[in-house]
């Protein structure tokens, strides 16, 4: 075989092609990571020079900042409910949309559409859907005799409201599951039928293992994404005065919203950078845990042999 691709002279050409990414990586990722670490060890309001405080920002966050724990709890609550519920709903939808029916494509479109809609527009829409008096949701609930839930105006219902809203946007993972379902060879089901397996057995012993890579992918993406929930809370909660975002009694003060307020409303850059690092480690731990656990339940065809 001719070694057209192996000469050492290709090093420079190679670096040339990846140069945009390499420069961008240094300027917009690696450099800022180091600077971010440095900023997090300083007290800095942007107006004066940064002033070194060591790990004080971190120790303050953990020892003297109840709002941090509120935001951590709010975010965890949001993740714990949106991710599993989102997976269950999108899997159920994918199974339904996978039925060999005429016109099913139109239904797929409808389910997918909300997930690409503009998040601020969606937030404005749902802000009014959750209106206790005139909103769509309470109007519908009144039919069933339920009334008076204040949703975004109530400390108790603000987070569930955002979880409900998130379920409207599960179209993306529905499409991923749908593609995975369509990749399952029909012979597997036929063989199982011959062996006398029922629908439940087929679901748990064929469907779930065969789509487990897609399940894993959606779980990881879902966790990372919902830990960073921001726009909904920013647009939908709090009154019109800047600074009041985060809902009734901080019920929807999520980590990224808290970080945003510290950085861009209070201009406490060091403190906000420290919060960002804590957020990063939380996401990292969850992702690593998922990856670890995945070895037990995710089935990759190429490895399985």
């Amino acid at each position: 075989m001719r070694r057209v691709f192996g000469r050492s002279g290709h090093n420079l050409t190679g670096y040339g092609f990846i140069a945009p990414w390499l420069i961008g990586f240094l300027a917009f990722t690696a450099g800022p990571i180091l600077v971010s670490l440095f900023i997090s060890l300083n007290s800095w309001s942007l107006l004066s020079d940064p002033h070194w405080v060591g790990f004080e920002n971190y120790s303050r966050i953990f020892e003297e900042d109840p709002l941090f724990f509120t935001s951590l709890w709010n975010t965890t609550y949001y993740v714990i409910f949106t991710v599993p519920l989102g997976l269950a709903v999108s899997l159920a939808l994918a199974l339904l949309l996978n039925q060999p029916l005429r016109g099913v494509g139109a239904f797929r479109t409808i389910v997918y559409l909300p997930s690409i809609a503009n998040i601020v527009a969606v937030s404005v829409l749902w802000l009014w859907i959750f209106n206790p008096e005139f909103g769509l949701l309470n109007s519908a609930l009144r039919v069933f005799g339920v009334d008076g839930i204040l949703w975004l105006q109530s400390e108790r219902w603000a987070k569930p409201a955002l979880v409900i809203m998130s379920l409207w946007g599960v179209g993306g993972s529905t499409i991923i599951f749908l593609a995975a379902l369509q990749g399952i060879p029909p012979e597997l089901y036929e063989a199982a039928s011959l062996d006398g397996a029922g629908a439940a057995r087929k679901f748990f012993h064929i469907t779930i293992p065969m789509i487990s890579p897609a399940l894993f992918f959606s779980t990881v993406i879902g966790i990372i994404g919902s830990f960073q929930v921001f726009a909904q809370a920013y647009v939908m909660t709090g009154a019109a005065t800047p600074g009041s975002e985060g809902g009734p009694n901080n019920a929807t003060l999520f980590l990224v919203l808290y970080l945003y307020k510290k950085a861009f409303q209070e201009f406490r850059m060091g403190y906000a950078a420290a919060l960002a690092w804590i957020l990063f480690f939380i996401i990292l731990i969850f992702t690593l845990m998922q990856t670890r656990l995945s070895r037990r339940w995710v089935y990759y065809e190429s490895e399985g042999g």
């Binding site: 990586f25 917009f28 800022p32 990571i33 971010s36 960073q228 950085a263 960002a276 957020l279 990063f280």
Partner: peptide, 23 residues
């Protein structure tokens, strides 16, 4: 390099947000 490139997908934007803003 490719592995580094992929791994940066994992990094939440909030970590680099403040230095980039300052920059």
């Amino acid at each position: 390099f490719f592995a580094v490139c992929l791994s940066t997908m994992m990094l939440p934007g909030q970590v680099t947000m403040i230095p980039l803003y300052v920059f």
